[in-house]
Amino acid sequence: MKIKINRQETIEEFEVPFKSTTLLKALYHIKNNIDNTLTFSSNCRSGVCGACAVRVNGKEVLACSHTPQDGDLVEPLVYHEIQRDLKVNKQKARKTLKSSTAWLHQPQKATISQEQVALTEKQSDCILCNSCYSSCPVLEVNPNFIGPFALTRAYRYTSDPREGDVKATIDNIQTNGVWDCTLCGNCTEVCPQGIDPKMDITMLRSTSAQFGYSDPNFQAMDFGFGGF
């Protein structure tokens, strides 16, 4: 089977002697036997460490969980600085976790039911692979957008009965946050963990409304048409 890899200067094609394998194995085959300089990231080989996300034919996948097809084009994530071949710098995207302050601000004691755990069970399955970030069209126009995974994480903590100060997080996701999302659903489609950031963002909008925030886009429109 042939696999094409976008190495920035060129798109190179490699022949790998497998019929059915994971993309990660194919990449290692190339690195170990054909070209030592091929550069990519991985660690767990089992879909939980989040290191190996790449794009195949334009769609984000985990290399360790993807079964490649003949002719696949493998590329690095977008909206990340490309360091080399398929390896990208995730630091900028990770900073969104800090700006969204996705953590427990004021821990309080609470009795939690299994039903409450189940409510954000999916959200806390996030492996920080950055696939959703790479798929989000808003980042094309606004590089400061907090982005899907950090908002999902903000939702996960604001829904936790142990959080004594929900507003603290909500305050921090208003600018470049919940209202900037176009609800296109790309993130939901690519998440390898079946997480639905789009829905989480919708939920965060209604929590934001409870704290008196509203969609700044609507306000802008009000200004334009106000009085008529």
Binding site: N43, C49, G50, A51, I127, L128
Partner: peptide, 11 residues
């Protein structure tokens, strides 16, 4: 040597 969340503990 990795991002913290890529550590084996995740497994």
């Amino acid at each position: 040597k990795h991002y913290p969340t890529a550590s084996q503990t995740s497994m």
